[in-house]
Amino acid sequence: MSFAFNEVAMKEFDIWKKKFPDDPEGRRSLIIPALRLAQRQAGWISPEIAEYVAGITGTAPLQVWSVVTFYSMFNREPVGKNLLQFCTSISCGLLGGEELISHACRKLGIEEGKTTDDGIFTVTEVECLGACGNAPVLQVNDRYHENMTIEKLDALINELRNKEQG
């Protein structure tokens, strides 16, 4: 089954096209936005999806793949419904970021970088999220959760799990 943008993604992609010059260089700029739309739809970027993006941007598959592998926000493997990204950089590290991710791994029974069997959670360690004043910071998919504590984390995990299962 080959990948293609659904209607929503295609609509957004059309909006992105208007932001850039209508020439090969301008279309190459569409690679990152297109990859983001694809990842939102599919959850991750497979080589097949990269080829699709190459097609709609008029670029070579490897040009797209170079971008996929360079930037840290593109998932090259499927991830859980909730991608828990724990910052452990300096300020978050000083204020308990590492304890938070360890706790998450223990609670969910997985190692860093892995996904729970029910596909609901993936735990990763990320670099500075730019919200250090409210350290420690956790990003779940697109949303920031700041001033995290172990208690808040437990509550959040429960809430997210209930949402998937309920």
């Binding site: 080589p47 990269a50 070579a60 598959p61 490897l62 040009q63 793949w65 170079s66 592998t69 360079f70």
Partner: peptide, 21 residues
């Protein structure tokens, strides 16, 4: 031909072809 290029970054930077090609 764009069949061989830099992938990844940092110390893991790898000159490679498209996966499977």
């Amino acid at each position: 031909d764009h069949s061989f290029a830099r992938t990844k970054r940092g110390n893991r930077l790898e000159l490679a072809a498209f996966p499977g090609k």
